[in-house]
């Protein structure tokens, strides 16, 4: 049968060139097809990254050199925001508070979560392990706002349940939320309670995946208890510890929910954190340029702390 290919005589549109380039039945053509497919799969992630991470970061950088109050267009002010920031005593106080909170909270979190994980790992094959895992993880599922509001009641100096029970033990009322000496401890305890489950699950996961042959060999060699923990478990767990510590530290450097809801940063500035300062400067005082400058310094601090942790980890992290 004769087929008349009348269309083949017409001039080809430009898009046909691209189609042939991609569909070419050659090694290069197949490579190009695979590359295109790869980019297509990556596109949602790249787009998300550009729109939600890179874009806002670049705009924050841009804003940090401007004065902007939402109502009027941004006005270029050079380094003014940074000069003001380094002279602002309240920013200094908020950094001090944040560092104290980070050190207290991360220390408590890592130590308690690790000890709990060790304990639960010992009974891993019993039904009780399910109960403990669920119980410790449950607070992670709660909203930070709900936890802060509820614990705010419990920590109330005059009507709180905690002081009531301490009173039964003969201990005077503690101003958990209204004394600058105590307020950071209160916030740290609240945060530890809510976040413990997450770190605990990471450690438990690490412990359950430790190579049993190494542990058994250590036992055969007579290593038990503290010796086994110090010389075998801790080195093997060091990558997990590094991961948990870094993620917790990054999270805690961005402390916001608990102090914002429980104390509003008070009394005075005693519990004001860097992120609170940033939020209040932007959305309270309508100084988005200044808030952006604070955000950039915090970004730099987080970057530096994380970099230092990776650097220091060379000495104590053991990779199999």
């Amino acid at each position: 049968m004769l087929i008349h290919r009348t269309g083949a005589q017409k001039p080809k549109p430009a898009s046909n060139w691209l189609r042939r380039w991609l569909a070419a039945d050659t090694i290069d053509g197949i490579k190009r097809q695979r590359a295109l497919l790869g980019y297509l799969f990556l596109a949602p992630t790249i787009l998300g990254l550009l729109i939600f991470i890179i874009g806002p970061m670049l705009y924050t950088f841009f804003l940090s050199f401007h004065k902007w109050n939402v109502f009027r267009p941004p006005e270029f002010v050079g380094l003014d925001n940074f000069v003001r920031l380094f002279a602002d005593a309240r920013v200094g106080i908020s950094y001090r508070n944040t560092f104290i909170l980070v050190v207290m909270t991360v220390l408590l979190l890592e130590v308690m979560a690790f000890l709990l994980a060790l304990a639960v790992n010992r009974i891993a094959r019993t039904r009780l392990a399910y109960l403990y895992r669920t119980a410790y993880f449950l607070p992670v599922l709660l909203s930070g706002a709900a936890v802060s509001v509820t614990l705010g009641y419990l920590f109330h100096k005059d009507f709180g349940v905690i002081n009531y029970y301490l009173g039964l033990l003969g201990i005077d009322k503690i101003p958990w939320l209204t004394s600058s000496d105590v307020v950071l401890i209160t916030i740290s305890l609240t945060t530890v309670w809510r976040n413990l489950g997450f770190t605990f699950i990471i450690y438990l996961g690490g412990l359950t995946s430790l190579p049993t042959e190494v542990l058994e060999a250590a036992e055969v060699d007579g290593a038990t208890g503290w010796r086994k923990l110090r010389s075998i478990i801790l080195p093997l767990m060091s990558p997990t510890i590094l991961f948990a510590t870094i993620t917790d530290m990054i999270k805690m450097l961005q402390f916001f929910d608990e102090p914002f809801i429980m104390t509003r940063g008070g009394p005075g500035d005693a519990s004001r954190t860097v992120v609170m300062m940033m939020y209040e400067s932007g959305f309270g005082n309508l100084e988005f340029g200044y808030a952006s400058a604070i955000a950039l310094t915090l970004f730099a601090v987080i970057l530096a702390v994380t970099g230092f942790q990776f650097y220091a980890s060379r000495r104590f992290v053991f990779y199999q």
């Binding site: 101003p175 209204t178 004394s179 509003r264 940063g265 008070g266 009394p267 005075g268 500035d269």
Partner: peptide, 13 residues
């Protein structure tokens, strides 16, 4: 206003 009020009511100042 609230920040300095809290300093007075908590006895800090």
């Amino acid at each position: 206003y609230t920040r300095y009020t809290s300093l007075a009511t908590s006895g800090e100042q």
